[in-house]
Amino acid sequence: MYRAKTTLEQWRILQAVVDHGGYAHAAAHLNKSQSSLNHAVAKLQDQLNVKLLEVKGRKAFLTEAGEVMLRRSRHLTQNVQDLEELAANINQDWEPEITIAVDLAYPKKLLYPALKSFYPESRGSRLRIIETVLTGTEEAITQAWADIVISPLMPRGFLGEPIAECSLHPVCHPEHQLAALDGPVELNDLQQHLQLVIKDTSNTPSEKQGWLKSEQRWTVSTFETAIDLLLQNIGFCWLPDFIIEDLIASKSLHRLPIKGSSLRPLICYVVKPKPDSCGPGTHLLYQTLIQQSTFNSFYNSSLSDSYTNSYKE
């Protein structure tokens, strides 16, 4: 039978040293002495006979081999954490707190009926509703800091159920220079004007989603602030249809026709980042969100109608 040379604690220490940029900050985070961390990592390297870290100045950097080992170690420590959380959920009837991360692109008016239905069955569980954007939503799934995530992004390796669809539209004030252009707006025209951007809630945002080519860019935290600025004839912004439909109807805002793409369609999914270790309350809320969704019934109805029509033909 194979006996491990290393311990989970050694791998957790290595992860902390890398994540916090060195031994000193990692020691403060773990509430351990810096010398104990040095000893643990040195012993880990000796046991494996592999150089994992190189210290340059006051910072520790991963070697090429260290990057591979660290990445695999995160799966190891996460699997152990999931096992322990699963055991805890098996031993308790109901989780005391449920965290749900909701991307701002999801129309929250669809969320409230599900929460109202869930409340009588919640058995006193505290519910934390955290609003997220872009990479912040993705990290809620990949880092599993939320029990349930409603997201228009689906990271590789995860599954979810579609519960809503919406679209993002470029809008500005009716008197903005872009609104006065004849015909569809060219991308070069957009690049010359101020773009309002909703702040990514991740600590390490990644600009890989959406159109972000304007040199002039203001970042705000909420759609409400973006709209307030737009109503003052400041900039343009991509906003969800459910946010702007009344403002477009009242001609308070102008929807920009853009050559090549005047909207970005989105499908929002409900995801359980750790499906095997979620508690009964999380599972009930997840199922309630799916049952309250009109997306699935519409989708299934469309499939049924399509099948029936094909059969008749």
Rank of each mutant, 00 (worst) to 15 (best):
P280T: 08
E161K: 15
I267N: 06
S310C: 06
L110Q: 12
R71D: 15
Y106S: 02
C237F: 04
Q81A: 13
E85S: 10
P96Y: 06
Q191Y: 09
A27Y: 00
T7Q: 12
L266C: 02
K32C: 11
T288L: 01
I100N: 00
F158N: 07
K108V: 14
Q291P: 04
E84T: 05
G21I: 08
K59M: 09
L37I: 07
L159P: 07
Q15V: 01
S73C: 09
S117D: 12
D147V: 02
Q292P: 04
K259E: 13
D276H: 02
T99S: 05
S167W: 06
L110N: 10
K213S: 13
K56T: 07
T63D: 10
P273I: 00
I290G: 02
Y311F: 09
N91E: 12
S252T: 13
E64G: 03
L230P: 01
N309M: 12
D189C: 00
R126K: 11
D305K: 12
S35D: 13
A40V: 02
L8G: 11
Q292V: 02
T288K: 03
H39Q: 15
Q81N: 10
L159S: 14
A144P: 03
Y106G: 04
P96L: 06
C268E: 03
V68W: 07
T294A: 08
A26M: 04
L266N: 01
K312D: 05
I13S: 04
Y311H: 09
S214L: 09
P275C: 05
E121D: 10
A164C: 06
G281S: 14
Y269V: 07
Q143T: 08
K109A: 15
N203D: 13
A249F: 13
P107S: 05
N89V: 00
K5D: 11
L44Q: 03
N79H: 15
L14F: 14
H25C: 12
E207R: 12
